[in-house]
């Protein structure tokens, strides 16, 4: 197999490392933290990512998308090494999740009005807790899109899945988050306008007939 790696001087490698790789370290650490839920493991994962990036720096095309390249290395390191090391289960029952969420897919749209006051007062902890409760592949989609601002194409490359799968994972992940946030908000007095409207309709069928 042909080796496409260029030969770079030590100084050039340091320059790429400092100027193109290191500026993304907080974003990588944040991603690692949300994958592992643990500061020590997140630190290890980021260190491993940067060491790998440096070892393969000659395969990187200077001035291209360093952030996406580093995220891909981190994602692979997480799958290949971290999960093995901590012996975490890698399989999620996607069938169950997909069936459940496909059956409710359309009804979620617009059913959670975040313009209401109760959501504006919600602190980051509750949102982060809900995010961390998502299965890892769905959590990854939200982190890469909504937190890091990657395009669907970039996410597809980082995670190694088709763009259509990115789209559906994001849609389902957001629906799951809406469910969790709604449940939380209801405990704080949030009233779902759609649900209360349909309750009213059931209670006063004659009123609705006359409209």
């Amino acid at each position: 197999m042909a080796d496409n790696r260029k030969k770079l001087s030590k100084e050039k490698k340091q320059q790429i490392f400092e100027n193109e790789f290191l500026p993304h370290i907080d974003a990588l650490y944040n991603f690692a933290f949300h994958l592992t839920y643990n500061e020590v493991d997140a630190n290890d994962l980021v260190q491993e990512t940067y060491l790998k990036a440096f070892r393969f720096i000659e395969s990187y095309d200077e001035g291209t998308n360093a952030k996406a390249w580093l995220f891909k290395i981190l994602k692979n390191a997480f799958i290949n090494e971290y999960r093995k090391r901590v012996k975490q289960p890698t399989k999620v029952d996607y069938e169950e999740i997909i069936n459940y969420h496909e059956s409710e897919e359309e009804t979620h749209l617009g059913s959670l009005d975040l313009r209401q006051e109760v959501f504006q007062g919600m602190i980051g902890d509750e949102v982060t807790k809900s995010l961390n409760a998502l299965p890892v592949d769905f959590r990854t989609a939200v982190l890469l899109c909504d937190v890091e601002g990657f395009t669907y194409e970039e996410i597809a490359k980082i995670v190694d899945i088709p763009i259509g799968t990115v789209r559906s994972r994001l849609h389902r992940a957001r629906n799951m988050l809406k469910d969790m946030l709604k449940e939380y908000a209801q405990k704080r007095g949030y009233e779902d306008t759609e649900e209360s409207e349909s309750e009213q309709e059931n209670q006063n069928p004659k009123d609705n007939e006359s409209e």
């Binding site: 919600m122 949102v127 939200v142 909504d146 937190v147």
Partner: peptide
């Protein structure tokens, strides 16, 4: 809301 509220480490 997600962009703003998710904790950034």
């Amino acid at each position: 809301f997600l962009t703003e509220k998710i904790e950034r480490k």
